[in-house]
């Protein structure tokens, strides 16, 4: 092992060094990207699950077609959670007052890294919960359309199931906001 270790000053000494050398600004922006992107994946997944069943079931029972758009809107809400989170996070990324190639020694390094990791994790929290929520709403919505076509009294009942599935995404966004609350990028040296 030791014989293979690179002795140059420019070498990485392990994963911890690789990770700490990635810019916290990069972490923060990836957090935004994952939060928004995964939420949209979840919403899109739910919409086609619901949509394909909706058009099929509407052939024999055309009355369901506008009512069941509510299921599609529930899926769409998942994407909106991602957008809200992305806007909150994007407002927290602040560039330093002086543009320097290196940061000074008395820069608030702890707060700097804390903000980067915090925003990355908060974006992932929102994104992953929203995928689960979107797929869940989509499956319930697909069954809702098929059930409603047979028996109109089922619609409201399955809608409640969908609301609970949709609530999964809200859990994610609540925790995401709390996680990112204390993340503030330092703009000047202490």
């Amino acid at each position: 092992m030791s014989s293979n270790t690179c002795q140059s000053a420019y070498c990485n000494q392990g994963w911890s060094e690789v990770l700490t050398h990635m810019s916290p600004y990069g972490y923060a922006n990836f957090g935004i990207a994952f939060g928004l992107g995964l939420s949209v994946v979840g919403a899109a997944w739910g919409i086609w699950l619901t949509g394909s069943s909706l058009v099929g079931a509407a052939v024999k029972a055309p009355r369901i077609r506008s009512k069941n758009l509510i299921s599609v809107i529930f899926c769409e809400a998942t994407a909106i959670y991602g957008v809200i989170m992305a806007i909150i996070l994007a407002n927290k990324v602040k560039k330093p007052e002086e543009a320097l190639s290196t940061l000074s020694e008395d820069w608030d390094w702890a707060g700097y890294y804390y903000a980067g990791y915090g925003m990355f994790s908060s974006g992932l929290s929102v994104g992953l919960t929203n995928i689960a929520s979107g797929v869940s709403v989509g499956i319930a919505g697909s069954s809702c359309a098929i059930g409603d076509a047979q028996d109109a009294s089922l619609f409201v009942k399955i809608l409640i199931v969908e609301i609970f599935a949709s609530a999964l995404g809200i859990f994610g966004i609540i925790v995401g906001i709390i996680q990112s609350n204390s993340c503030t990028f330092p703009v000047t040296a202490i």
Binding site: G51, S52, S53, V55, G56, A57, V59, K60, S142, Q150
Partner: peptide
Amino acid sequence: GFPEALVRGMR
């Protein structure tokens, strides 16, 4: 999804 919903509509 579409053919399945069709056959279930035909029910």
